[in-house]
């Protein structure tokens, strides 16, 4: 199977061929990798890539997964070529360029909304204050724009990635 793997903003083409149970040959980063893999009882993958042996714990998140390699955790999106093509088409047809939304990065409580609908905001301006785990976090405008719609009120509890407000770029 061939994959398009996105990591740190870069795409890598990887093709993987099974040669025996738990044994593969990968073609990636301009070379061939003999791979042996065992899935541990807790889901961790123990992998030998040539002489390099390592453990990876994989945590699916949104369209990809966090790969925990010990200290470092890296977000990786591994898509089959078909999935990657579909994604590109979707992205091309998505909404008006420059419009943006602010989503809550975590479950929490809305402490205050610092702007009103119709307000013209600058990039980096504070928009909503969310409290979670005893900390107040100010969410800022990712870009300049006009606030179109505010979807939350102070005191309201929100789930992670809930849309708090939407804006248009002028």
């Amino acid at each position: 199977m061939s994959y398009s793997v996105k990591v740190n903003g870069k795409e890598h083409a990887v093709s993987l061929r099974q040669v025996a149970p738990g044994r593969f040959v990968a073609s990636a980063f301009g070379k061939e990798w003999p791979l042996a893999v065992v899935r541990q009882a807790d889901g961790t993958l123990s992998i030998a890539a040539g002489d390099d042996r390592f453990d990876a714990q994989i945590d699916p998140f949104e369209h990809g997964a966090f790969v925990d390699l010990g200290v470092t955790k890296i977000f990786v999106e591994a898509l089959t070529l078909r999935e990657a093509q579909k994604r590109k088409l979707q992205e091309a047809s998505a909404g008006g360029a420059g419009d943006w939304q602010v989503r809550s990065p975590m479950p929490g409580k809305v402490v205050s909304v610092l702007v009103a609908e119709g307000a013209v905001v600058k990039k980096g301006q504070g928009l909503v204050v969310i409290e979670a785990m005893k900390m107040e976090n100010e969410l800022r405008a990712p870009d300049a724009g006009i606030i179109k719609e505010i979807q939350v009120k102070p005191g309201q509890t929100v789930v992670a990635s809930a849309v708090l407000l939407a804006a248009s770029s002028k």
Partner: peptide
């Protein structure tokens, strides 16, 4: 490199569960 290989192996094992030897 490790993360990319692990992510791809993870997908491959999930799609063909029986081909993965387990602990």
């Amino acid at each position: 490199e490790r993360a990319v290989l692990a992510a791809v192996l993870h997908r491959e094992l999930d799609d063909h569960a029986s081909s993965a030897p387990s602990a």
